[in-house]
Design a protein around this nucleic acid. Structure first.
Lengths: 132, 132
DNA sequence: CCTATATTTAACCTATAGGTTATTTAACCG
DNA sequence: CGGTTAAATAACCTATAGGTTAAATATAGG
């Protein structure tokens, strides 16, 4: 019944309201009331969403007088990225090429004499920084 | 009621059984019965999970006589990766440094004369390929 | 202490997620 | 055709997700 951490994280991210809250928090720490402001739903609803995010380790909360400022916690998102890693080859062409290159390196290593097919000219750079 | 695509994807990934199915499919296309084999639950249950994965665009299914082979579909995972992109800076130090560097470049551009603080020595390489 | 503000908790409702067993559908095979 | 194998569908059950309103809790400030 206590969902495993990764499941909890994905479940938390499966709600547009919660993703919107994260998007807001990406711009900086803020209070519950301010987080609730853009939404039409009640404050207790937001409070519940925040609890879900917190249990999923997607946010952490401080305390400052009567406010409970929320901020993004990196660990869970990092775990999602880690989980994605092994599927990257299914869509990332660049990843594919790197993979091929590594395979080939290993092959050369073992044979001493390279098969010399196509000689792909490595280009180690991954080009996976940011879109822009 | 028709969940937006990203929510559907995250919801689909929030179940360990479904993630296990994806992990199996990452090793290659296979049939429903073979997919069900490692699990204790009934075949209709697996069938439902597959439907969820399919609606989330995480898998696609072929037809071969009485078998419906399943394979991974890249688009949804790619979308998750895209969504993650803007949060990467929260945990990826390398990303951070690149970001700083770009900021600085822009600053120089506008001022003509660089502030010359610390002079971080770019190091453009992202080093974000694969773990090992 | 009293009151205003910020947030959580409680009690409740409804829809749906995830499972079950029993029944159908579809395609192959002798 | 009749049997067998592969998979989906139907009908059902139970727990829980996501919302509501009303009440409780915590803190600052006159």
């Amino acid at each position: 019944m206590p969902l495993d951490p990764l499941s909890a994280t994905f479940a938390a991210l499966a709600d547009p309201t919660r993703r919107a809250i994260l998007a807001r928090l990406a711009r900086g720490e803020t209070s519950v009331t301010e987080l609730a402001e853009p939404f039409t739903m009640s404050l207790p609803a937001i409070s519940k969403h925040l609890k879900v995010l917190e249990h999923a380790n997607l946010i952490s909360r401080g305390r400052e007088a009567q406010w409970r400022p929320c901020r993004i916690a990196p660990s869970a998102l990092k775990d999602v990225d880690g989980w994605l890693e092994r599927y990257r080859k299914f869509w990332d062409e660049n990843f594919d090429r790197l993979d091929d290159y590594l395979q080939e390196l290993k092959a050369q290593e073992h044979e001493g004499n390279a098969p010399d097919k196509a000689k792909p000219k490595p280009k180690t750079e991954k080009k996976r920084g940011r879109k822009k």
